[in-house]
Design a protein around this nucleic acid. Structure first.
Lengths: 342, 342
DNA sequence: CTTGATAGATAAATCGGTTTTGTTCACGGT
DNA sequence: ACCGTGAACAAAACCGATTTATCTATCAAG
């Protein structure tokens, strides 16, 4: 059906070896005449080389994949933009796979990608497929983790400095007179992945370091469903003794849910409750009260992860051991923590 | 390096043809004994078939692609979810390509996808690569358009009923006492793609049909940059004569920009200006005034486009001519058009 | 005892390229 | 006249699978 290299060779009255040389730009092996002849025939027949056949022989596909935890997550999509741009510049193809934070889906993708012989992957992993990732990396398909780091896998990783981010956030709240701060984080106790744990731990440490009141019950580990969150909030606000005047969400999803809950409860931000988020997201500025956040340089991180991956693929990092790279978060001051952010 | 079918055959003391039969589940051609032997060897060696080789011979990759105009667009990401789910159910692989509304990028993707021999694509096209899409479809790689339809290409398409959506919106505004309505739409005059044009045209027609005041200057065709939009709004609000009391955004991007602008101008929604949007987006409910919108059934549309594509791939639609399928939009009433939506 | 199925495999061709190795021929030097 | 050399191309092997044709026992039927 489709036109192949043989068709081209036949039409040009030449062997397919020569056509192949032409395709790969090795013009020194042919006369100017044949070169032009081939060019012409290719155009006439609208010939397009079959990448499968080529990759099969060459053992490289010039394609990498980004396996992401969720395409609905603004941090992730920005990260992808960085990856795309870097790929464009280096001539690699990028394919996107959305694992939806489901380890099974993730594993399925890892496997089909491998069988499709992609050259490498960047991944924000669930942390549940470490063995597969480790093997993949060891057997010659480089892996770079981004956003989430898993200590057990010895591969390159690009993350944000979570501790620093928490410190940044707490100092900002302190500067606005807040001392009673509650921290909301999605369940991490059974999660093999670092960010949540690191952020929670950093919160614990910084609160003590800065001499702020820390109660273990104010470090709330729960899902972000409305009812669950509502229950937790009620617990924090009822009874005697001091109540939190600020809530700090450990990631965008959690912060968004907190905002929604406060809105439903008719609690004003920041007068009744200050809100600080980790991760920036597109519409944080458009809410009734624009939300102040600790932001990650997501675009750069995606770019950098891809850069490292492609360096590995090109064997430019042969002696270099796997490295964990930290990016510094920044504070984006809007209005959810008090007035001076006007 | 990697283990191949030959390694398996050798280790099992058997020919590779038989191993291949095993891989394809044609067990009737071998004894139970060899079958178990092969199974064992495959596990021991951790053998994974090379999909490139397989696809090269079989001339199908069991992979389809979704080429999208922007992964930042909530409508699109929802659409992708639908596509993913349908693929999962039917055992197809889905790869995502983000063309970022750039015809060049789009064409680049179309071409590499073709050279990678994917089985088909669904696409929300820029409308600038019709020739490529037409050829692709004609030469055996089915194409299904979604969200945007291009009349010149004779392929299946799944879109929303734009006319109906505009009607829905205008009637809702009328019900809230609005008669002076301005419509904001991104530039479409030189765009080969239908939705913007259809929506603008429908607005024009419905306004007249319902006996509402229609001025061509109130159908604003402009980009959604802050300054541009501000200029247009000023134009509408100054001078004598009636001013619009409601703005209708032709898509999510435009509506979002309108909301931002009104917010910056300290115009209250809906008291000073009612807002109605086309396309729903995740955070429309969380704004200071939750925005009322005409929503498309995005998930279903993505699913349906994929279903049609896979039917074409499987040749189950041989006699059936390319069809344009319309989905009905729905009105999601929130608070931006007046009180009763409480 | 021959013939014909049949089960259980295998060898060889094939997919569409790339790469290695050969071949042919012209030409320059001696 | 002979050799060596390089330019220009071709033949063949190869990549890792699938598929088709072929082979070899074994056993039943005639």
């Amino acid at each position: 059906m489709a036109v192949t290299i043989n068709d081209v060779a036949r039409a040009a009255g030449i062997s397919k070896s020569t056509v192949s040389q032409y395709l790969n730009g090795r013009y020194e092996f042919m006369s100017l005449e044949t070169r032009q002849r081939i060019k012409q025939v290719i155009e006439e027949l609208d010939y397009r080389p079959n990448a499968l056949a080529r990759s099969l022989k060459q053992k490289k596909t010039h394609t990498i994949a980004a396996v992401v935890s969720s395409i609905l997550n603004p941090f992730i999509t920005n990260t992808i933009r960085g990856a795309e741009d870097y790929c464009k510049e280096t001539g690699f193809n990028l394919i996107l796979c959305n694992a939806d934070d489901d380890p099974k889906q993730e594993l399925a993708y890892i496997q089909t990608l491998q069988s499709k012989q992609i050259d490498g992957i960047i991944i924000s992993t669930t942390g549940r497929n470490n063995e597969a990732l480790r093997t993949m990396n060891r057997t010659g398909t480089p892996v770079v983790l981004f956003s989430r780091h898993v200590p057990e896998i010895e591969v390159d990783a690009v993350t944000v400095d979570n501790r620093a981010g928490i410190g940044l956030g707490i100092r900002h709240l302190m500067a606005h007179g807040h001392r009673n701060i509650a921290f909301f984080v999605l369940p991490y106790s059974d999660s093999p992945v670092t960010p949540r744990r690191e952020r929670a731990q950093a919160f614990r440490e910084y609160m003590q370091e800065y001499g702020l009141p820390f109660h273990e019950e104010w470090l709330v580990e729960c899902t972000n469903e409305e009812e669950v969150l509502a229950g937790q909030l009620d617990r924090l606000l009822q009874g005697p003794g001091p109540h939190p005047t600020a809530v700090f969400g450990a990631n965008d999803l959690m912060t968004m849910s907190l905002v929604r809950l406060l809105k439903n409860r008719r609690l004003r931000i920041p007068q009744d409750m200050a809100v600080l988020g980790f991760d920036d997201w597109e519409w944080a500025p458009y809410l009734s009260t624009p939300i102040t956040v600790v932001a990650q340089p997501s675009y750069e991180m995606g770019r950098r992860a891809t850069e490292r991956l492609i360096q590995r693929i090109r064997n430019q990092l042969l002696g270099v051991p796997p490295t964990l790279e930290y990016y510094q978060p920044t504070l984006i001051v809007r209005r959810s923590c008090g007035e001076s952010g006007e």
